[in-house]
C-alpha cells in the first residue's frame, strides 16, 4: 500500500435506489470500500444486504431505473456515468466477473476450448492459432482441469457443475485482468467442489497479480482466502477490516451475531448448547428501520439513540472500522 498510487478499486459513498411498485427500495446506502492491488477482498452479507448490487454497480450492469450516487473509481478513473462501450472495453479486459450460474453462462453448442479462445481473442487479436491453443490449455490447467488438451474439445454439457464453474473462472482471468469479481462462485456447489474452486482462487491469488473481490454469504469461505473483509447488512456497510481482526476482534454486533450463529464443524458441542440466534427477521428493503438498520435485532440497541441516529464508520483498529453508535461502550 503506497500513498501515491490510487487504490485499484475505490468505492465511495455509493448509494443505489430502485423505484418499484411498492415505493423506493434503497438497495445500497453510503457504502465505501477499497481493493488494493493483489488483494483478495471479501464482501459478505445475507440476502438483501446489497452485496450483489454493489458488484453490479462496479461492473456498470445496473438497470437504467437505478438511481446511483457516490463514486466508483478504478485505477483513479471514475466509472459511474461512463458509456456502455467504454465499460464494455473495461469489462473482460481490466475487470472480469464470474457469476454463480455456470450453466447458463456457457454456450451449449460451442466447444469449451473454442469459447475460451474466443474470450481471449476478443481482447487480443495478435495471437496465432497455435499460441491461442497453448493459452487455452494453460488456462484450463491453471483452474485445475485435468487432461486440459482433451477436455478443451468437449462441450459444456460434458462437464460437471464444478468444472463449468472453473471454465468460467478461466474465461474471467483469460486476459489477466487487474480485478476479478467473483459473485457467489461456490453457492450452488457441494463442499468438495467448493474446495476445488477455492483452491483455484487461491492459486490465482498466489500466482497472478489479479485482485479478487469475492462476494459471498459464507464467512467461512473468506476466512481462508480474504485479506480484507467487508460486512454488509440491509444495504449498509457495518464493518470493514483486515481478516484477522474481523474474526478475532469482531466489533459490530451484527458480525458478532453472525459468527455466533454459525455451527462449527471443528468443535464438539454438548447436547445442551444452543447457538446464538439473531432475533427477528431481515428487514424489507422498502421499509428499512430508521437510525441504525440493525437496531431492531441488536442486543445492545439503546432507545432514543440507535433508532434515531445513523451510525458512521468509526475506527476501531488498524484499518478496521465498524458502524455502530455504541462501539465504545460495548467494546
Amino acid at each position: 500500500m503506497t500513498a501515491q498510487n490510487p487504490p485499484l478499486l475505490m468505492v465511495e459513498d455509493l448509494s443505489i435506489a430502485f423505484g418499484t411498485e411498492e415505493g423506493t427500495a434503497r438497495a445500497v446506502e453510503q457504502v465505501s470500500l477499497r481493493v488494493e492491488s493483489g488483494q483478495v477482498v471479501g464482501l459478505v452479507g445475507e440476502s438483501g444486504s446489497g452485496k450483489s448490487v454493489v458488484s453490479a454497480a462496479i461492473l456498470g450492469l445496473l438497470p437504467n431505473t437505478a438511481r446511483v450516487t457516490g463514486s466508483v473509481r478504478f485505477q483513479g478513473t471514475e466509472l459511474l456515468g461512463r458509456t456502455e462501450s467504454q465499460l464494455r472495453e473495461l469489462r473482460g479486459n481490466e475487470i472480469a466477473v464470474v457469476f454463480q450460474d455456470a450453466l447458463s453462462a456457457l454456450n451449449p453448442v460451442l466447444k469449451v476450448g473454442d469459447q475460451l479462445a474466443e474470450a481471449i481473442r476478443v481482447h487480443d487479436r495478435s495471437l496465432t492459432k497455435k499460441q491461442l491453443h497453448e493459452r487455452v490449455v494453460e488456462l484450463l490447467d491453471l483452474v485445475g482441469i485435468s487432461a486440459p488438451e482433451q477436455r478443451a474439445g468437449l462441450y459444456p454439457h460434458e462437464f460437471s457443475g464444478g468444472m463449468r464453474q472453473r471454465v468460467l473462472i478461466a474465461m474471467g482471468i483469460a486476459n489477466e485482468p487487474r480485478l476479478l469479481i467473483a459473485d457467489e462462485p461456490t453457492t450452488a456447489l457441494d463442499v468438495t467442489v467448493q474446495a476445488q474452486i477455492l483452491e483455484v482462487l487461491e492459486r490465482i491469488r498466489d500466482r497472478t497479480s489479479t485482485s479478487i473481490l469475492l462476494i459471498t454469504h459464507d464467512l467461512g469461505v473468506l476466512a481462508g482466502l480474504a485479506d480484507r473483509v467487508v460486512v454488509m447488512y440491509a444495504g449498509s456497510k457495518v464493518e470493514d477490516g483486515p481478516v484477522e481482526p474481523i474474526f478475532y476482534r469482531t466489533a459490530h454486533p451484527y458480525t458478532r451475531g453472525l459468527l455466533a450463529s454459525l455451527p462449527r464443524v471443528d468443535r464438539r458441542t454438548d447436547r445442551t448448547s444452543r447457538l446464538y440466534r439473531i432475533p427477528g427477521q431481515l428487514p424489507n428493503p422498502h421499509s428499512r428501520p430508521e437510525g441504525c438498520v440493525f437496531h431492531p435485532r441488536c442486543p445492545h440497541a439503546q432507545a432514543a439513540r440507535c433508532d434515531r441516529e445513523r451510525p458512521q464508520p468509526s475506527v476501531v483498529g488498524d484499518g478496521h472500522v465498524a458502524a455502530c453508535l455504541r462501539i465504545e461502550e460495548i467494546g
Binding site: 468438495t192 467448493q194 474446495a195 483452491e199 467461512g220 464443524v265 471443528d266
Partner: peptide
C-alpha cells in the same frame, strides 16, 4: 476425510493452517 477437510471454518488462522484434501475428478 475429504468432505470434512473441505468445509471452510470461520477462523482465519485455523483455516490457513489446515491441509485441505481436494478430491480430483467428479462423482
Amino acid at each position: 476425510q475429504a468432505l470434512l477437510s473441505a468445509v471452510p471454518v470461520p477462523d482465519p488462522r485455523a483455516e490457513r493452517r489446515r491441509e485441505r484434501i481436494v478430491l480430483t475428478g467428479d462423482v
